[in-house]
Design a protein around this nucleic acid. Structure first.
Lengths: 326, 326
DNA sequence: GCCTTTGCGA
DNA sequence: TCGCAAAGGC
């Protein structure tokens, strides 16, 4: 049987709110390591992964590794019924096809339990190799969210360009162009407002703002966000969950059109971005984070999917290996 | 070249929010006097004018008078990307067909620049003659906004009647009638809560609430609103912008039906309102603030447009005469 | 945490 | 165009 108890129940609610719009159904993997999930978004463009380590729970018991197939919208619905101060307990008995959520009000005056049917979901657990990134930007999560929201009122894609001095977010749309530069700043007294850039190579990559805005739903989980960029890898947008783990979003860069580069103000930096080198293809199953087909821009030629260097691991018998890279 | 810098950037945002629903496109006139705009609303029923005097800006430079054709919705979109505490810089080089907005966060850690295409807009600058008004009401802007909102849930038009004692806002609709009377009150200690009436003649005029509610979008700009009424003139609803200027809305009164007057509770006062005397027609272009054709009341016979005594001035070569009546 | 405001769907 | 739900401000 599997059981966990979390005093700060709002945390689970926030995790669900952050991913439910991106992923429809996913397997929640429960092991001695903790509770984790990994799933591609419904259009196979982005990948979401979170981990909540067992040590972070007030109580955690996992007799055997199990995998619970969950409809995220339904689970979010149920968790919405928990008060923000409620203590949440999640319980799944072996051999049943349902999971129970229990919400206890802080005063213990109100106790609710919700039972939800589980689903059978085909999915393989992907081992995502840790990579070296050309640039890692750490900045206030609220600022990142604001920038993505603002830019998406002008254009559909964002070019993220990193230099030693700062990070620039640019877009262009029918009504004009926009550039937002965030300077590096190590505010010691307010570390949550710091913007810190670790850079090996200058990098400039293009992403669909639509997905960035989805990722930014995780903002309530952490005051800072970490954006890891490399020319030939999907960007990683990570929110650390205090004391427990993280939620990470992966998104393949858009291949910039030649025409688009002509306009780019960061032209000189574009050499830092090699033209989409073919990644070494593993003979096993290929996992694709596909370049989004935008029905808004029928003129833009649809590009072949970007191969991702993600090695699939066959998940056998509910046995799960949780990747724990910190 | 033209450049202005405004520490209180939220002010420009508020001006845009106040007018963007009323006017689609308009010329922004930049002269040594300041930045001003004058435009009729898209259905030619109301007129909007604002002035921000050059002295009010932290920096103001205008080498030659220029007129920038702006799509207000787009400009509002861009200004929404400015933080409320941001310092805003607006820049337009001569001979370019675009304008740049720059937003600096208070800490200078974030600097954004937005470039917007300008448009070619035909419009003549109207000299609006200062008029003598029968009655001028000054009252808290929030109260005026609340009244217009409340009344529009009952009826479509408001009758504003001014006597020495106070101002009455009345409406009637299918579900009943409403009258809201605001007494004159000179609160010395809280001048922003005062309601002050300067009256030469009793006056009672009818306006479309729809427009009044649009005007009330300017409420965040000033704690007080001034409503100037005369029987044969458009009402002026003015919000002063502290230290800088004003935003003014003009709206032609509706011609009351005889039937409507029968119902009017202010019947005795209706003599103060001469039956729509034909204004002296200037031989130049006639500017009409047309009486709105309400598709809600097909039974009401559409009246001919009310001629307004507004003398158009041909705007020549970007030369602008800013009316500055305080 | 509540309330106003804004964006979206009917 | 109105009403509802999510989001931002006090």
């Amino acid at each position: 049987m599997f059981e966990l108890r979390l005093v700060q129940g709002s945390l689970l609610k926030k995790v669900m709110e952050a991913i439910k719009d991106l992923v429809n159904d996913a397997n929640f993997d429960c092991s001695t390591t903790g509770l984790s999930m990994q799933a591609m978004d419904s259009s196979h463009v982005a990948l979401v992964a979170f981990l909540l380590r067992s040590e972070g729970f007030e109580h955690y018991r996992c007799d055997r590794n199990i995998s619970m197939g969950i409809n995220l919208a339904n689970m979010a619905k149920m968790l919405k019924c928990a008060g923000n101060d409620d203590i949440v307990t999640v319980k799944a008995d072996d051999g049943t096809d349902s999971v129970t959520f229990m919400f206890e009000s802080p005063t213990q005056d109100k106790i609710a339990d919700f039972e939800m049917k589980l689903m059978d979901i085909d999915s393989e657990h992907l081992g995502i190799p840790e990579a070296e990134y050309d640039a890692i930007v750490r900045m206030p999560s609220a600022e990142f969210a604001r920038i993505c929201k603002d830019l998406s009122s002008i254009g559909d894609t964002v070019v993220i360009s990193v230099t030693k001095e700062g990070v620039k977010f640019s877009t262009r749309g029918d009504i004009g162009t926009a550039n937002i530069v965030c300077r590096q700043n190590t505010s010691i007294d307010k570390p949550e407002e710091a913007t810190i850039i670790e850079m090996k190579e200058m990098v400039s990559l293009t992403f669909a703002l639509r997905y960035m805005n989805s990722f930014a739903k995780a903002t309530p989980l952490a005051s800072q966000v970490t954006i890891s960029l490399s020319s030939d890898l999907p960007v990683v947008v990570e929110y650390k969950i205090a004391e427990m783990g993280y939620i990470r979003f992966y998104l393949a860069p858009k291949i910039e059109e030649e025409e688009a580069e002509t306009h780019a103000e960061t032209k000189s930096k574009s050499e830092a971005k090699p033209k989409r080198p073919k990644p070494e293809v593993k003979p096993e199953v290929q996992i694709h984070l596909e370049v989004e087909d935008s029905c808004m821009e029928p003129a833009v030629e649809s590009k072949p999917p970007l191969d991702l260097d993600i090695k699939p691991k066959k998940e056998t018998n509910g046995e799960v290996e949780v990747m724990d890279v910190e």
